[in-house]
Design a binder for these strands. Structure first.
Lengths: 261, 261
DNA sequence: AACCGTGTTTCACTATTTGAGACTACTTAA
DNA sequence: TTAAGTAGTCTCAAATAGTGAAACACGGTT
């Protein structure tokens, strides 16, 4: 997903290795990495060593396995605090979650994929950290469609090319044409719906977070289960959702001008 | 802090640049970076370009500023899930926080510095993400001392060399000898106290999380303010703290976690 | 028009990366 | 016990990628 067609140098390759380790979702041995690696043995070996030195990976000497290093957690702390909408949006999504009594998601788009940067659910607050950082496809989620619909055309085109259009559920839009049509509707209506397109039984209403210049920063959504509500019920929350998105948008804008206005 | 005495190659330098951007705690212009950089202009320029391509940094074209990229958030998500104590410890520290009604911290040691991987505070649950990833010194925090005291001698020596021994408050132990003495006490007593050594008005009781083989994985602490309680009051929570640490230790072991050193 | 401060590009020079292969250490099979 | 196998580490000449002084482009000031 990140491995650009033409890599940029040694650093790019190292990042590729990082991704690879991450993709295993568990501690991994050198030989396992090697088996799925485009790099020859000594090259991969050096990368892994370097990354370990740097704290981007950690090596368990007992088990001879590598996993993601905690330096990443600390770098990401910084990223989250200073490059995501989450810190400014926090009070608003909390508020919204409390008001509607359902899960509220906050997302940004990252290379065509929806990155959940925060989540707020009244019933169990502690799911938060586990969810922030999660990645989902853009073409079949409410937040994804909301962001895509409001992107500048050139960027949108690029992002649309990156979607897989795999059928997550029977309701998923599985081709680009259908998605484009849907996005047009989203743009005129102002909100996007996820009608069980990503996960069966889960629906959501999402709207983009825009600056005053109509640049899309991210999206907020209210998600719920079909056991409890239907799309029509979510529709009732639309004013609340729009208000929250609007507040976040204006505040984020202010926050982007720290000293020099 | 991470830039090993002798850097490892291009990748190491790139990471150094990442750290530098992170250290600004805000979007930063190229020239600002250049001013504090050991690298000549074009070199730095290329690094910044590469890192941006890779999604490790993001560039705001309007404002001409760089900040940490959201790819880091997604990589860190993986790190947090698979290489930190947090996921296993979560239920226990929540439980502990609820029982004692004070903030509970969970930390690991990373290159001599305490990395807070989780935090739980009954009054406001949502501070969590903002706190996880925070870095504090090892020599003047409860969790830091608890971890240091129980480290294998060789590693401990290395970690002690990395402390700055700066006086955060009038109560800080400001030299290695004093700290070593304290650590010995900690080791015999089994818990460490932070007597306003890091921040004035903040005290804590901390204890290490150990495996059955007495390998130290991290530490938990209960922190409070001197406005409400004294060290003696925290002492009463000792059984609860030890029990939680013990439970986390055994559970973490089952999960077969890697070492961090 | 001349000047200055950013940010970007060029290009010859050089240091780093590269990877086939050799080597070690440890495990399994005979 | 030795032989064969497997995972991990090291070496070194060749190739590549990184380096940075200098020069360029661009917008804003004086």
């Amino acid at each position: 997903m990140y491995n650009a067609p033409n890599s940029d140098g040694t650093v790019g390759k190292a990042m590729q290795v990082l991704d690879q380790v991450a993709s295993f979702q568990r501690p991994v041995r050198f030989s396992e990495l090697l088996a799925n690696s485009p790099f020859p043995k000594p090259t991969l070996y050096r990368f892994v060593q370097t990354l370990t030195n740097q704290g981007m990976l950690t090596f368990d000497a007992e088990r001879q396995t590598y996993s993601m290093g905690i330096r990443l957690v600390s770098l990401a702390h910084s990223a989250w605090r200073h490059s995501s909408l989450a810190p400014v949006a926090r009070p608003y999504i909390e508020d919204l979650a409390a008001k509607v009594g359902e899960a509220v998601h906050l997302a940004q788009l990252d290379n065509g994929h929806v990155l959940f940067v925060d989540k707020c659910k009244v019933s169990d607050h502690f799911e938060t950290l586990a969810q922030a950082g999660k990645i989902a496809p853009g073409y079949c989620t409410g937040v994804g469609k909301a962001i895509l619909a409001f992107m500048p055309e050139a960027e949108q085109k690029k992002a649309l090319d990156q979607q897989s259009y795999a059928a997550c559920t029977p309701f998923t839009l599985t081709n680009r044409a259908a998605l484009v049509l849907e996005l047009e509707k989203v743009k005129t209506v102002g909100v996007a719906y996820d009608r069980e397109e990503h996960e069966q039984g889960i629906i959501s209403i999402a709207c983009p977070i825009l600056t005053r210049q109509s640049r899309v920063l991210g999206a907020v959504s209210i998600a719920t289960s079909t056991n409890r509500y239907q799309i029509e019920d979510l529709e009732n929350q639309r004013p609340n959702l729009l208000k929250a998105a609007n507040l976040i948008g204006t505040e984020a804008e202010l926050w982007q001008f720290p000293t020099w206005s």
